[in-house]
Design a binder for these strands. Structure first.
Length: 492
RNA sequence: CGGGAUGUAGCGCAGUUGGUAGCGCACUACGUUCGGGACGUAGGGGUCGGCUGUUCGAGUCAGCUCAUCCCGACCA
């Protein structure tokens, strides 16, 4: 495959789109800004869903489903929330079409205008809290811990596959609690679920932290985030968990009788991750040969490519593959024997590499004679020849090693591109080269905005686990006193 | 919604001063190949984004329009 584009080149966007297309993950749909997720891409998303879903359930969360359409009036109840989403809503105004009077196609039937317009959900806080009002009467009804897997629509001006599409798939959790402490604890708990998922399942190192007020979710008192670094050094917000206070409880009049008989408003959290995680996966791990998938998300973990000239050779190799396939399947490993007769081995090698399959086994007449097999790992591109009987036993440890190695590689990359910075001159230059800069910030929206206007860089988070730096200093821009360092970066 | 660009085969593109539509990849058939994206031969595939105009004649010129992409503002 041609190696014209490298991950840190200026044409990162082209490189990314190239991988999306060649790895057969997604394609552009006829609808502007929307995306068709193809079977291979969707299989990865399904694996993400299953893993996350199990993690949610371990924390007591249950799945539910709420309507796609939200009456417009619901949005006017929470002022900050509506301000955040008003500019990007798809609105349903009619419910019927009719044949065009001029005989050409169909038109909207003017008589079918809805009395109240419906908004296609950009997020479901409003409709869910309108339902919670009926569910929550007593402290005994709390907490309510619901999650839904669904699609949402945000009519963005500019779109990019997986990272920002007009419609996207996601999961949104919405919880109601009796106390602020409990809701805040849930907010922290869920961001840690996301961090664990990113690190262990996606092999993606993330920084957990608070968003600055400027970057907070519309209507939230606090937003926790996981921030990841892509291979061009830019930041990607990969998941968020919001503490919503009593904003929605009050807006939707969700009151309950507390233990002491007093009426209280419920406390809320919401948290979500989307198909944007697919974008993160692509941009964090791929190389010039295509996608590199962590084994825990790979739809196919081991692919077997037979090499042969005659039917006899083919049958002999496939027989060995079947044996190994059975042994691996018994261990819960997903295996594919690529027995397509019309393609040459070299083509198959390249194709499975683009798709990011972690391990490839190849076997031909030469190996057959030696009772050996070639084992190839996608992450390092290393080949190893080993005796056939040892292969099945070797694979589980190899997959585990690949999983860890991909994480290690991404972590090393991030470590090499994070640094402290105390000079505004240095900041302006370094931030453009793809770095996370740990800098002092005076805590004001004005300073953050001024830095953004000057450099496009934003505060990605105020870290709570890695890179925590509680030391006094002077703001990088304003020179005013600062209590701690925060993470600045240019983001997707 | 501002600034820039592009619409020609499934994809990527060429098409000169206006004169009967081309290339590469992909696709179909046959043969030779098969240990890192094979090769040969023969085929199939088009409302040149749309409309209007200029002209004997428009992919090419003009006007309008639609769509897409990139850069801004917005955003997970």
């Amino acid at each position: 495959m041609a190696k014209e584009i490298t991950p840190r080149s200026e044409d990162y966007s082209k490189w990314y789109n190239d991988i999306v297309v060649k790895a057969d993950l997604a394609e552009q749909s006829a609808v502007r800004g929307c995306m068709v997720i193809k079977p291979y891409g969707y299989a990865i998303w399904e694996k993400m869903q299953h893993t996350l879903d199990a993690m949610f359930k371990e924390t007591g969360v249950q799945n539910a489903y709420f309507p796609l359409f939200i009456p417009k009036s619901f949005f006017s109840r929470e002022a900050e929330h509506v301000a955040g989403f008003a500019k990007e809503c798809a609105v349903v105004t009619h419910h019927r079409l009719m044949n065009s009077p001029d005989g050409k196609g169909v038109v909207v039937d003017p008589d079918a205008r809805l009395e109240e317009e419906l908004i296609v959900r950009p997020t479901s806080e409003t409709i869910i809290w309108s339902v919670y009002k009926n569910w929550i009467k007593s402290w005994r009804d709390l907490p309510v811990l619901c999650n839904q897997w669904c699609n949402v629509v945000r009519w963005e001006m500019r779109t990019r596959p997986f990272l920002r599409t007009s419609e996207f798939l996601w999961q949104e959790g919405h919880t109601a609690h009796a106390t602020a402490e409990e809701a805040e604890a849930r907010t922290r708990q869920m961001v840690q679920v996301y961090a664990k998922f990113a690190r262990e399942t996606m092999s993606l190192p993330v920084i957990v932290g608070h968003k600055s007020p400027n970057e907070r979710f519309a209507g939230a008192l606090d937003t926790l985030t996981i921030e990841a670094m892509m291979q061009d050094g830019k930041a990607l917000q990969a998941g968020t968990s919001h503490f919503l206070g009593q904003n929605f409880g009050k807006s939707f009049d969700v009151q309950f009788a507390d233990k002491d008989g007093s009426l209280q408003y419920a406390w809320a959290t919401s948290w979500g991750v989307s198909t944007r995680l697919m974008g993160a996966l692509i941009m964090a791990h791929s190389d010039d040969d295509g996608l590199i998938l962590p084994p825990s998300l790979a739809p196919i973990q081991v692919v077997m490519v037979p090499i042969y000239k005659t039917d006899d050779e083919r049958n002999a190799v496939l027989e060995k593959f079947e044996e190994i396939s059975k042994a691996l399947t018994a261990k819960g490993i997903s295996v594919k024997i690529d027995d397509r007769d019309t393609l040459r081995p070299g083509f198959k090698f390249a194709e499975w590499e683009v798709k990011g399959v972690p391990v490839r086994l190849a076997m031909g007449a030469r190996d057959l004679a030696n009772d050996s097999m070639e084992v190839f790992r996608r992450d390092t591109l290393e080949k190893e020849t080993m005796p056939i009987e040892k292969v099945a036993g070797h694979i589980p440890a190899l997959l585990e090693d690949i999983q860890k190695n991909i994480y290690r590689k991404a972590l090393d990359f991030r470590e090499a591109h994070v640094e402290k910075c105390d000079s505004w001159e240095e900041f302006q230059e370094k931030i453009q080269t793809g770095k996370f800069l740990l800098c002092h910030w005076d805590g004001t929206v004005e300073t953050e905005q001024a830095i953004k206007d000057a450099t496009k860089a934003t505060i990605r988070c105020i870290p709570v686990d890695s890179y925590v730096c509680e030391e006094k200093g002077k703001d990088i821009y304003s020179g005013k006193p600062s209590e701690r360092r925060v993470v600045f970066a240019i983001a997707y």
